[in-house]
């Protein structure tokens, strides 16, 4: 699933896109970055309600290239800067983590764990 397909499904908005398009096939939903750092697979999406610099650092250092911020969480310029340096896409959606996860699961995105 690419970024355009994702935002259409979750009524989302792309705040910053990947320079090199990626097809995403799995996702992990958590506000706990300690948990996010424990498991990994390529082409995974992180769905979270935690909109901090550490969210983007966690994605950067664990090799995640797509972060979806639930319930319309705002991002800072610094978050966008770090995301841009590491080619991380940031998407926002007005929907909850639960609903975003449910929609993407229904459309074939697999759980990571």
């Amino acid at each position: 699933m690419n970024l355009d397909q994702i935002i259409e499904l979750i009524d989302g908005e792309i705040l910053i896109a990947n320079e090199n398009p990626i097809e995403y096939d799995s996702a992990f939903a958590s506000d706990l970055m300690s948990d996010v750092l424990r498991w990994h697979c390529d082409n995974m999406i992180l769905i979270t309600g935690l909109a901090t610099i550490q969210t983007i650092r966690t994605a950067e250092l664990s090799g995640i290239y797509c972060v979806i911020l639930a319930r319309g969480k705002k991002v800072s310029d610094e978050m966008l800067e770090i995301a841009g340096e590491s080619d991380i896409a940031i998407l926002t959606s007005p929907k909850s983590m639960f609903e975003i996860s449910g929609i993407l699961y229904q459309e074939g995105i697999k759980p990571l764990y």
Partner: peptide, 15 residues
């Protein structure tokens, strides 16, 4: 609140 402190850092470093 920053998303850490779950007591999994050191075991994850070992892993």
């Amino acid at each position: 609140q920053m998303g850490f402190g779950a007591g999994m850092g050191l075991p994850n470093i070992k892993k």
